[in-house]
C-alpha cells in the first residue's frame, strides 16, 4: 500500500507488544499524512522517550528521537528555525504531561505551529506499568499497587486552558475519525493537540483486569460519545471524542516573522 511508502519497512515488525494500540495510531497517522500529500522531506517528527517515542524510528521522515519529556522543546527549536517544515510530535501520556508538562503548557500558550499527539495508554509501558498522569483514580499500577491516589489529568481541559488553538480526542478504535482529526490538526496553523486513547493490554490492561486488546478497544467503542453529548450523564466512565477547540490566534513563528520584516533595513535607507 502507498501507506508503506512512509514506513522504514526494514524495521518491521515493530517492537510494540501484540495488540498495542500504538501501531494503529502509527498507521492512521501515516494515512493522514499520505492523504494530505505532504512530501516526506517537509516533515520532521520529534518524539521523546517511552513506547510511544519509538514511532519515529519506523517512519521515513526526518526523525528526531529526543529525551524523556523534551520532544516539544526540540520541536520548538526545529519549527522556529525552519517554519516551513511540518513538525509533528507524538508523545506518551507520561512523556507529554508528567516530565514534559512544563513544555506542553508553554507550547500551548505560544501557539507555535506544532502538532502534538498524545498517545494516552494510561500507563508507563516501557518501564512496566507504573502510574501515569492519565491513570484514573483507584486504578492499579505497579507503583500504585493499592490503587491510584490521584486523578487522571484532563488533557483536553489543560490544553484548552493553556491556549492550544486546536484540541481533539479520539481512540484507536475510531481509526477513521482519528485520521480526519489528525489531518485537521496537521493542517491547523497553530498549536494543535490530539489526544489518542490507545490500549496497553500488557500492563494497564492486565493490572486493571481490562482484558485483551479486543476487549479494551470494545470498551473505547462503548464509552466514547460525541463532543457535547448528554450520554455522559448516565455513565461517568464515558468520554467525549471529536473536536473540542478550533480557533484562530496569532501563530508564534508568523508573529516573529512580522517583527523580522518590520526590522529589516529598507533599501532606501542606505541610499
Amino acid at each position: 500500500m502507498a501507506t508503506l511508502d512512509y514506513v522504514r519497512r526494514r524495521f518491521l515488525p515493530h517492537i510494540w507488544c501484540p495488540g498495542c494500540g500504538h501501531g494503529t495510531l502509527m498507521a492512521t497517522l501515516v494515512r493522514a499524512i499520505e492523504e494530505l500529500a505532504i512530501p516526506k522531506d517537509q516533515i520532521v517528527m520529534a518524539s521523546g522517550i517511552g513506547c510511544s517515542s519509538r514511532i519515529v524510528g519506523y517512519l521515513d521522515l526526518h526523525t528526531l528521537h529526543t529525551l524523556h519529556g523534551r520532544a516539544l522543546a526540540f520541536a520548538t527549536g526545529v519549527k522556529m528555525a525552519k517554519p516551513d517544515l511540518h513538525v509533528i510530535v507524538p508523545m506518551g501520556d507520561g512523556d507529554a504531561l508528567a516530565i514534559g508538562g512544563n513544555h506542553f503548557i508553554h507550547a500551548c500558550a505560544r501557539n507555535i505551529d506544532l502538532t502534538a499527539i498524545i498517545m494516552n495508554n494510561q500507563t508507563y509501558g516501557m518501564t512496566g506499568g507504573q502510574v501515569s498522569p492519565m491513570t484514573g483514580h483507584g486504578e492499579r499500577a505497579t507503583t500504585m499497587p493499592y490503587g491510584n491516589l490521584g486523578q487522571a489529568l484532563d488533557v483536553v481541559a489543560v490544553a484548552r486552558a493553556a491556549g492550544a488553538t486546536y484540541v481533539a480526542r479520539s481512540t484507536v478504535y475510531h481509526a477513521p475519525q482519528l485520521k480526519k482529526l489528525l489531518m485537521k490538526a496537521i493542517q491547523h496553523r497553530g498549536f494543535s493537540v490530539v489526544e489518542v486513547l490507545t490500549q496497553c493490554p500488557t500492563y494497564y490492561g492486565r493490572l486493571n483486569q481490562r482484558g485483551d486488546a479486543v476487549e479494551m478497544m470494545t470498551w473505547f467503542k462503548e464509552h466514547a460519545v460525541p463532543v457535547g453529548s448528554d450520554a455522559r450523564k448516565d455513565d461517568p466512565a464515558r468520554f467525549e471524542v471529536g473536536e473540542f477547540v478550533n480557533v484562530e490566534r496569532p501563530e508564534y513563528c508568523a508573529s516573529y516573522d512580522e517583527i523580522v520584516t518590520r526590522l529589516k533595513p529598507r533599501e532606501d535607507e542606505h541610499a
Binding site: 528526531l64 522543546a73 526540540f74 520548538t76 527549536g77 526545529v78 522556529m80 528555525a81
Partner: peptide, 13 residues
C-alpha cells in the same frame, strides 16, 4: 532544559 533542547533542534536544521 527546554532552552538547550530547542538549540539542539534548531542546529539540526
Amino acid at each position: 532544559i527546554g532552552s538547550l533542547c530547542a538549540v539542539l533542534g534548531a542546529s539540526l536544521t
